[in-house]
Simulated scan of single mutants.
Amino acid sequence: MTLVQKREAQFLDALYLGVRDRAGFDASLELLGNLFDVATAVLLDFDAARPEVSAQASVGLFTGEVLDRYQRDFATLDPAPRAFMAVPAGTAMPTYRLLREETRKPGVFFNEFFRPLGLEECLGGTLASTKGGFAMVGLQRPQDRKAFDDDDIARLEALMPHLTRALQLRRGFLELEGAAGAMSEISNRLAAGVVALNEYGRSLFVNAAARRMASAADGLSIGRGGRLFAANRAANNRLAELENDVRAGGAGGVARAPRAAGKPSYGIMVAPFFLDDGVDGSRSRPRGVMFIIHDPLLKAQSDAQTIGALFCLPKGAAQLVAAIAANEELQAYADRTGISMNTVRYHLKTAYSRTGVRRQSDLVRLVTTALRDLTDHRDIGA
Protein backbone atom coordinates (compact mmCIF):
# COMPACT_ATOMS: atom_id res chain seq x y z
CA MET A 1 0.00 0.00 0.00
CA THR A 2 1.41 3.38 -1.01
CA LEU A 3 1.59 6.38 1.31
CA VAL A 4 -1.30 8.04 -0.55
CA GLN A 5 -3.42 4.90 -0.22
CA LYS A 6 -2.69 4.74 3.51
CA ARG A 7 -3.71 8.37 3.91
CA GLU A 8 -6.89 7.75 1.93
CA ALA A 9 -7.70 4.76 4.16
CA GLN A 10 -7.14 6.91 7.27
CA PHE A 11 -9.46 9.54 5.83
CA LEU A 12 -12.22 7.01 5.10
CA ASP A 13 -11.94 5.47 8.58
CA ALA A 14 -12.20 8.91 10.19
CA LEU A 15 -15.04 9.93 7.87
CA TYR A 16 -17.36 7.07 8.82
CA LEU A 17 -16.39 7.20 12.49
CA GLY A 18 -17.23 10.91 12.42
CA VAL A 19 -20.84 10.31 11.38
CA ARG A 20 -21.88 10.47 15.05
CA ASP A 21 -19.56 13.28 16.10
CA ARG A 22 -19.05 16.78 14.64
CA ALA A 23 -15.46 16.95 15.92
CA GLY A 24 -14.71 13.61 14.27
CA PHE A 25 -16.35 14.76 11.06
CA ASP A 26 -14.18 17.90 11.07
CA ALA A 27 -11.09 15.75 11.72
CA SER A 28 -11.87 13.62 8.66
CA LEU A 29 -12.14 16.78 6.57
CA GLU A 30 -8.70 17.83 7.81
CA LEU A 31 -7.31 14.49 6.60
CA LEU A 32 -9.00 15.10 3.24
CA GLY A 33 -7.30 18.48 3.02
CA ASN A 34 -3.95 16.87 3.78
CA LEU A 35 -4.48 14.47 0.88
CA PHE A 36 -4.66 17.46 -1.46
CA ASP A 37 -2.00 19.57 0.27
CA VAL A 38 -4.48 22.22 1.43
CA ALA A 39 -5.29 23.34 4.96
CA THR A 40 -8.79 24.68 4.34
CA ALA A 41 -11.79 22.52 3.46
CA VAL A 42 -15.53 22.77 3.96
CA LEU A 43 -18.63 20.63 3.51
CA LEU A 44 -21.60 22.86 2.69
CA ASP A 45 -25.36 22.60 2.35
CA PHE A 46 -26.81 25.25 0.05
CA ASP A 47 -30.48 26.25 -0.16
CA ALA A 48 -31.05 28.35 -3.26
CA ALA A 49 -34.60 29.31 -2.29
CA ARG A 50 -33.58 31.38 0.74
CA PRO A 51 -30.58 31.52 -0.22
CA GLU A 52 -28.76 30.05 2.76
CA VAL A 53 -25.53 28.17 3.33
CA SER A 54 -24.80 25.96 6.34
CA ALA A 55 -21.53 24.19 7.09
CA GLN A 56 -21.77 20.50 8.00
CA ALA A 57 -18.02 20.41 8.65
CA SER A 58 -15.12 22.81 8.18
CA VAL A 59 -11.40 23.06 8.92
CA GLY A 60 -8.64 25.57 8.40
CA LEU A 61 -9.55 29.17 7.63
CA PHE A 62 -13.26 28.39 7.19
CA THR A 63 -13.96 28.06 10.91
CA GLY A 64 -15.02 30.28 13.79
CA GLU A 65 -15.46 33.97 13.05
CA VAL A 66 -14.45 33.60 9.39
CA LEU A 67 -17.14 30.98 8.79
CA ASP A 68 -19.70 33.12 10.63
CA ARG A 69 -18.76 36.12 8.47
CA TYR A 70 -19.00 34.04 5.31
CA GLN A 71 -22.47 32.73 6.18
CA ARG A 72 -23.66 36.16 7.33
CA ASP A 73 -22.15 38.54 4.77
CA PHE A 74 -20.72 36.69 1.78
CA ALA A 75 -22.63 33.44 1.17
CA THR A 76 -25.11 35.19 -1.12
CA LEU A 77 -22.22 36.81 -3.03
CA ASP A 78 -20.26 33.58 -3.50
CA PRO A 79 -20.69 32.56 -7.18
CA ALA A 80 -19.41 29.01 -6.62
CA PRO A 81 -22.43 27.34 -4.93
CA ARG A 82 -24.86 28.37 -7.68
CA ALA A 83 -22.39 27.31 -10.35
CA PHE A 84 -21.75 23.93 -8.72
CA MET A 85 -25.50 23.43 -8.38
CA ALA A 86 -25.65 23.04 -12.17
CA VAL A 87 -22.88 20.42 -12.15
CA PRO A 88 -23.99 16.74 -12.07
CA ALA A 89 -23.66 15.04 -8.68
CA GLY A 90 -20.37 13.19 -8.35
CA THR A 91 -18.52 15.70 -10.51
CA ALA A 92 -15.53 17.69 -9.25
CA MET A 93 -14.17 20.83 -10.85
CA PRO A 94 -11.81 23.69 -9.94
CA THR A 95 -13.26 27.18 -9.95
CA TYR A 96 -10.78 28.44 -12.54
CA ARG A 97 -12.57 26.15 -15.02
CA LEU A 98 -16.08 26.58 -13.66
CA LEU A 99 -15.94 30.35 -13.15
CA ARG A 100 -13.72 31.54 -15.98
CA GLU A 101 -15.15 35.06 -16.09
CA GLU A 102 -15.00 35.45 -12.31
CA THR A 103 -11.39 34.25 -12.35
CA ARG A 104 -10.51 36.74 -15.09
CA LYS A 105 -12.41 39.64 -13.49
CA PRO A 106 -12.77 38.89 -9.75
CA GLY A 107 -15.89 40.28 -8.10
CA VAL A 108 -16.76 41.38 -4.58
CA PHE A 109 -16.57 37.89 -3.05
CA PHE A 110 -13.06 37.16 -4.34
CA ASN A 111 -11.69 40.65 -3.72
CA GLU A 112 -13.21 41.32 -0.29
CA PHE A 113 -13.38 37.86 1.28
CA PHE A 114 -11.62 34.99 -0.50
CA ARG A 115 -8.29 36.47 -1.56
CA PRO A 116 -7.73 38.56 1.60
CA LEU A 117 -7.62 35.19 3.40
CA GLY A 118 -4.71 34.17 1.18
CA LEU A 119 -6.86 31.77 -0.86
CA GLU A 120 -6.72 31.51 -4.62
CA GLU A 121 -8.94 28.70 -5.87
CA CYS A 122 -11.47 26.06 -4.83
CA LEU A 123 -11.65 22.46 -6.01
CA GLY A 124 -15.30 21.65 -5.45
CA GLY A 125 -17.56 18.70 -5.98
CA THR A 126 -21.33 18.33 -6.00
CA LEU A 127 -22.29 15.54 -3.60
CA ALA A 128 -26.05 15.61 -3.95
CA SER A 129 -28.55 17.89 -5.63
CA THR A 130 -32.29 18.23 -5.11
CA LYS A 131 -34.86 20.86 -6.01
CA GLY A 132 -33.59 24.14 -4.67
CA GLY A 133 -30.71 22.72 -2.67
CA PHE A 134 -27.53 20.71 -2.81
CA ALA A 135 -24.45 19.67 -0.85
CA MET A 136 -20.87 20.18 -1.93
CA VAL A 137 -17.32 19.70 -0.73
CA GLY A 138 -14.78 22.45 -1.28
CA LEU A 139 -10.99 22.34 -0.96
CA GLN A 140 -9.47 25.84 -0.94
CA ARG A 141 -5.87 26.18 -2.07
CA PRO A 142 -3.57 29.00 -0.99
CA GLN A 143 -1.67 31.12 -3.47
CA ASP A 144 1.58 29.17 -3.01
CA ARG A 145 0.01 25.80 -3.91
CA LYS A 146 0.01 24.83 -7.59
CA ALA A 147 -3.31 24.92 -9.44
CA PHE A 148 -5.57 21.90 -9.14
CA ASP A 149 -5.11 19.54 -12.09
CA ASP A 150 -6.83 16.53 -13.65
CA ASP A 151 -5.20 14.13 -11.17
CA ASP A 152 -6.63 16.14 -8.26
CA ILE A 153 -10.06 16.12 -9.89
CA ALA A 154 -9.97 12.34 -10.45
CA ARG A 155 -8.84 11.65 -6.87
CA LEU A 156 -11.58 13.81 -5.38
CA GLU A 157 -14.26 12.24 -7.60
CA ALA A 158 -13.13 8.79 -6.42
CA LEU A 159 -13.66 9.84 -2.79
CA MET A 160 -16.92 11.76 -3.28
CA PRO A 161 -19.26 8.72 -3.09
CA HIS A 162 -17.93 8.12 0.42
CA LEU A 163 -18.48 11.77 1.34
CA THR A 164 -22.02 11.59 -0.01
CA ARG A 165 -22.83 8.43 1.94
CA ALA A 166 -21.25 9.73 5.15
CA LEU A 167 -23.20 12.97 4.84
CA GLN A 168 -26.44 11.02 4.39
CA LEU A 169 -25.64 8.91 7.44
CA ARG A 170 -24.76 11.98 9.49
CA ARG A 171 -28.00 13.72 8.56
CA GLY A 172 -29.95 10.59 9.49
CA PHE A 173 -28.09 10.31 12.78
CA LEU A 174 -28.73 13.96 13.62
CA GLU A 175 -32.43 13.50 12.87
CA LEU A 176 -32.60 10.46 15.14
CA GLU A 177 -30.59 12.24 17.82
CA GLY A 178 -32.92 15.23 17.62
CA ALA A 179 -36.02 13.03 17.81
CA ALA A 180 -34.60 11.09 20.76
CA GLY A 181 -33.70 14.30 22.56
CA ALA A 182 -37.18 15.72 21.99
CA MET A 183 -38.87 12.55 23.24
CA SER A 184 -36.62 12.55 26.30
CA GLU A 185 -37.59 16.13 27.12
CA ILE A 186 -41.28 15.35 26.61
CA SER A 187 -41.13 12.20 28.74
CA ASN A 188 -39.28 13.99 31.52
CA ARG A 189 -42.12 16.50 31.84
CA LEU A 190 -44.64 13.75 32.63
CA ALA A 191 -46.03 13.01 36.08
CA ALA A 192 -45.96 9.27 35.36
CA GLY A 193 -42.72 7.34 35.65
CA VAL A 194 -41.57 5.72 32.41
CA VAL A 195 -39.08 2.85 32.08
CA ALA A 196 -38.48 1.40 28.60
CA LEU A 197 -36.59 -1.80 27.77
CA ASN A 198 -35.57 -3.03 24.33
CA GLU A 199 -36.36 -6.45 22.88
CA TYR A 200 -33.41 -7.96 24.77
CA GLY A 201 -34.39 -6.50 28.14
CA ARG A 202 -31.78 -3.76 28.13
CA SER A 203 -32.68 -0.28 29.30
CA LEU A 204 -33.56 2.27 26.64
CA PHE A 205 -34.86 5.08 28.80
CA VAL A 206 -35.78 6.02 32.37
CA ASN A 207 -37.53 9.35 32.78
CA ALA A 208 -37.13 11.87 35.58
CA ALA A 209 -40.31 10.82 37.40
CA ALA A 210 -39.25 7.15 37.49
CA ARG A 211 -35.81 8.08 38.82
CA ARG A 212 -37.42 10.27 41.47
CA MET A 213 -39.75 7.44 42.58
CA ALA A 214 -36.85 5.00 42.75
CA SER A 215 -34.73 7.42 44.78
CA ALA A 216 -37.51 7.60 47.40
CA ALA A 217 -36.76 3.90 48.14
CA ASP A 218 -40.29 3.24 49.36
CA GLY A 219 -41.31 0.34 47.16
CA LEU A 220 -39.50 0.64 43.84
CA SER A 221 -35.90 0.65 42.68
CA ILE A 222 -34.05 0.82 39.39
CA GLY A 223 -31.08 -1.50 38.94
CA ARG A 224 -27.75 -0.60 37.40
CA GLY A 225 -28.97 -1.83 34.03
CA GLY A 226 -32.01 0.46 34.13
CA ARG A 227 -34.48 -2.30 35.02
CA LEU A 228 -37.43 -1.69 37.34
CA PHE A 229 -37.77 -3.75 40.54
CA ALA A 230 -40.42 -3.83 43.27
CA ALA A 231 -39.36 -4.29 46.89
CA ASN A 232 -42.35 -6.54 47.53
CA ARG A 233 -41.56 -10.06 46.28
CA ALA A 234 -45.07 -10.80 45.01
CA ALA A 235 -45.19 -7.47 43.18
CA ASN A 236 -41.76 -8.09 41.66
CA ASN A 237 -42.85 -11.53 40.47
CA ARG A 238 -45.95 -9.94 38.94
CA LEU A 239 -43.82 -7.41 37.04
CA ALA A 240 -41.62 -10.23 35.70
CA GLU A 241 -44.71 -12.20 34.70
CA LEU A 242 -46.17 -9.25 32.79
CA GLU A 243 -42.85 -8.51 31.10
CA ASN A 244 -42.60 -12.12 29.92
CA ASP A 245 -46.16 -11.93 28.64
CA VAL A 246 -45.28 -8.89 26.52
CA ARG A 247 -42.20 -10.62 25.14
CA ALA A 248 -44.34 -13.61 24.20
CA GLY A 249 -46.64 -11.35 22.18
CA GLY A 250 -49.18 -10.54 24.89
CA ALA A 251 -50.66 -7.21 25.93
CA GLY A 252 -49.13 -7.07 29.43
CA GLY A 253 -51.26 -5.75 32.27
CA VAL A 254 -51.31 -3.86 35.57
CA ALA A 255 -49.45 -4.51 38.82
CA ARG A 256 -49.45 -2.89 42.27
CA ALA A 257 -46.25 -2.21 44.19
CA PRO A 258 -46.92 -1.79 47.94
CA ARG A 259 -45.16 0.97 49.86
CA ALA A 260 -44.03 1.30 53.44
CA ALA A 261 -45.89 2.99 56.30
CA GLY A 262 -49.32 2.36 54.85
CA LYS A 263 -48.85 4.69 51.88
CA PRO A 264 -51.00 3.96 48.82
CA SER A 265 -49.34 1.56 46.39
CA TYR A 266 -47.73 2.50 43.13
CA GLY A 267 -49.77 1.45 40.11
CA ILE A 268 -47.71 0.08 37.22
CA MET A 269 -48.89 -0.67 33.69
CA VAL A 270 -46.68 -3.04 31.69
CA ALA A 271 -47.26 -2.80 27.94
CA PRO A 272 -45.53 -3.41 24.60
CA PHE A 273 -44.24 -0.85 22.15
CA PHE A 274 -42.70 -1.30 18.73
CA LEU A 275 -39.06 -0.47 18.10
CA ASP A 276 -39.35 0.22 14.36
CA ASP A 277 -41.67 1.97 11.93
CA GLY A 278 -43.19 -1.21 10.49
CA VAL A 279 -42.03 -0.49 6.93
CA ASP A 280 -40.37 -3.89 6.49
CA GLY A 281 -43.31 -6.29 6.34
CA SER A 282 -41.12 -9.33 5.72
CA ARG A 283 -40.28 -9.83 9.39
CA SER A 284 -41.99 -9.54 12.74
CA ARG A 285 -41.61 -6.16 14.38
CA PRO A 286 -39.30 -6.07 17.43
CA ARG A 287 -41.21 -5.29 20.63
CA GLY A 288 -39.91 -3.46 23.64
CA VAL A 289 -41.49 -3.36 27.09
CA MET A 290 -42.55 -0.17 28.85
CA PHE A 291 -43.48 0.32 32.48
CA ILE A 292 -45.75 3.29 33.22
CA ILE A 293 -45.75 4.11 36.94
CA HIS A 294 -48.51 6.04 38.71
CA ASP A 295 -47.77 7.64 42.09
CA PRO A 296 -51.09 8.50 43.78
CA LEU A 297 -49.30 10.77 46.26
CA LEU A 298 -47.86 13.07 43.61
CA LYS A 299 -49.60 16.42 43.53
CA ALA A 300 -48.91 19.22 41.11
CA GLN A 301 -48.37 22.75 42.35
CA SER A 302 -51.64 24.67 42.41
CA ASP A 303 -51.35 27.62 40.03
CA ALA A 304 -54.18 30.17 39.86
CA GLN A 305 -53.06 31.61 36.53
CA THR A 306 -53.03 28.19 34.84
CA ILE A 307 -56.36 27.23 36.42
CA GLY A 308 -57.95 30.46 35.21
CA ALA A 309 -56.71 29.94 31.65
CA LEU A 310 -57.76 26.27 31.54
CA PHE A 311 -61.29 26.73 32.83
CA CYS A 312 -62.01 30.34 31.78
CA LEU A 313 -62.30 31.48 35.39
CA PRO A 314 -62.07 35.10 36.49
CA LYS A 315 -59.14 35.97 38.73
CA GLY A 316 -61.01 35.73 42.03
CA ALA A 317 -62.54 32.34 41.25
CA ALA A 318 -59.21 30.98 39.95
CA GLN A 319 -57.39 32.06 43.12
CA LEU A 320 -60.02 30.39 45.30
CA VAL A 321 -59.90 27.14 43.30
CA ALA A 322 -56.09 27.12 43.52
CA ALA A 323 -56.35 27.49 47.29
CA ILE A 324 -58.86 24.68 47.82
CA ALA A 325 -56.90 22.45 45.42
CA ALA A 326 -53.99 23.00 47.82
CA ASN A 327 -56.24 21.78 50.70
CA GLU A 328 -56.98 25.21 52.17
CA GLU A 329 -60.35 25.51 53.94
CA LEU A 330 -62.85 28.12 52.70
CA GLN A 331 -62.91 30.03 55.99
CA ALA A 332 -59.12 30.02 56.19
CA TYR A 333 -58.95 31.38 52.64
CA ALA A 334 -61.44 34.14 53.50
CA ASP A 335 -59.43 35.10 56.59
CA ARG A 336 -56.12 35.07 54.71
CA THR A 337 -57.33 37.17 51.80
CA GLY A 338 -59.57 39.49 53.84
CA ILE A 339 -62.78 38.79 51.94
CA SER A 340 -66.19 37.77 53.23
CA MET A 341 -67.63 34.26 53.08
CA ASN A 342 -70.34 35.61 50.77
CA THR A 343 -67.61 36.58 48.29
CA VAL A 344 -65.98 33.18 48.70
CA ARG A 345 -69.29 31.46 47.95
CA TYR A 346 -69.80 33.70 44.91
CA HIS A 347 -66.37 32.70 43.53
CA LEU A 348 -67.10 29.04 44.25
CA LYS A 349 -70.46 29.26 42.48
CA THR A 350 -68.72 30.83 39.47
CA ALA A 351 -66.21 27.98 39.42
CA TYR A 352 -69.00 25.38 39.53
CA SER A 353 -70.80 27.09 36.66
CA ARG A 354 -67.70 27.37 34.45
CA THR A 355 -66.45 23.81 35.05
CA GLY A 356 -69.80 22.01 35.05
CA VAL A 357 -69.36 20.33 38.46
CA ARG A 358 -71.64 20.57 41.50
CA ARG A 359 -69.45 19.52 44.40
CA GLN A 360 -66.23 20.89 45.82
CA SER A 361 -64.60 17.45 45.81
CA ASP A 362 -65.36 17.05 42.09
CA LEU A 363 -63.93 20.51 41.42
CA VAL A 364 -60.70 19.65 43.23
CA ARG A 365 -60.41 16.33 41.39
CA LEU A 366 -60.97 18.02 38.02
CA VAL A 367 -58.40 20.73 38.64
CA THR A 368 -55.70 18.57 40.22
CA THR A 369 -55.93 16.03 37.40
CA ALA A 370 -55.47 18.77 34.81
CA LEU A 371 -52.58 20.34 36.70
CA ARG A 372 -50.91 16.98 37.14
CA ASP A 373 -50.95 16.35 33.39
CA LEU A 374 -49.82 19.83 32.38
CA THR A 375 -47.19 20.60 35.01
CA ASP A 376 -43.51 20.31 34.11
CA HIS A 377 -42.36 17.54 36.48
CA ARG A 378 -38.66 17.67 35.63
CA ASP A 379 -37.66 19.68 38.69
CA ILE A 380 -40.26 18.51 41.20
CA GLY A 381 -38.53 17.01 44.21
CA ALA A 382 -35.09 17.82 42.80
Rank of each mutant, 00 (worst) to 15 (best):
254 V>T: 11
29 L>V: 10
222 I>F: 00
123 L>D: 05
114 F>N: 00
232 N>K: 11
201 G>A: 06
298 L>C: 11
312 C>H: 10
350 T>L: 10
278 G>T: 03
35 L>Y: 04
201 G>T: 09
298 L>G: 12
353 S>A: 14
317 A>N: 05
77 L>M: 11
175 E>S: 12
22 R>M: 11
17 L>A: 07
155 R>C: 14
224 R>V: 14
320 L>G: 03
298 L>E: 15
84 F>H: 10
370 A>P: 01
222 I>M: 00
315 K>C: 08
329 E>I: 07
213 M>V: 01
231 A>G: 12
196 A>K: 13
181 G>C: 07
15 L>E: 00
346 Y>C: 08
10 Q>G: 07
269 M>G: 08
246 V>K: 04
141 R>H: 09
232 N>S: 15
78 D>C: 10
51 P>D: 08
313 L>A: 08
179 A>D: 10
79 P>M: 03
9 A>F: 05
48 A>D: 10
242 L>M: 07
252 G>T: 08
69 R>N: 11
319 Q>S: 15
194 V>Q: 11
63 T>L: 02
233 R>D: 15
295 D>F: 12
13 D>L: 04
133 G>W: 07
135 A>W: 06
302 S>P: 08
289 V>P: 03
338 G>F: 14
380 I>V: 15
209 A>N: 05
247 R>K: 12
286 P>F: 01
191 A>K: 00
98 L>R: 03
7 R>A: 00
209 A>L: 09
82 R>D: 12
315 K>E: 12
308 G>L: 02
255 A>F: 02
330 L>K: 11
117 L>A: 07
332 A>M: 07
118 G>R: 10
330 L>I: 05
226 G>M: 14
27 A>E: 07
138 G>A: 14
214 A>Q: 02
338 G>A: 12
310 L>H: 06
302 S>W: 03
28 S>H: 04
114 F>Y: 15
172 G>T: 11
228 L>D: 03
361 S>E: 15
109 F>G: 04
124 G>T: 10
199 E>T: 06
189 R>F: 00
327 N>Q: 12
151 D>K: 09
144 D>N: 09
90 G>K: 06
138 G>D: 08
278 G>K: 08
101 E>F: 14
253 G>H: 04
112 E>L: 13
71 Q>D: 03
375 T>A: 13
220 L>F: 06
126 T>V: 13
81 P>V: 02
308 G>H: 06
229 F>W: 10
104 R>V: 13
300 A>H: 04
365 R>M: 04
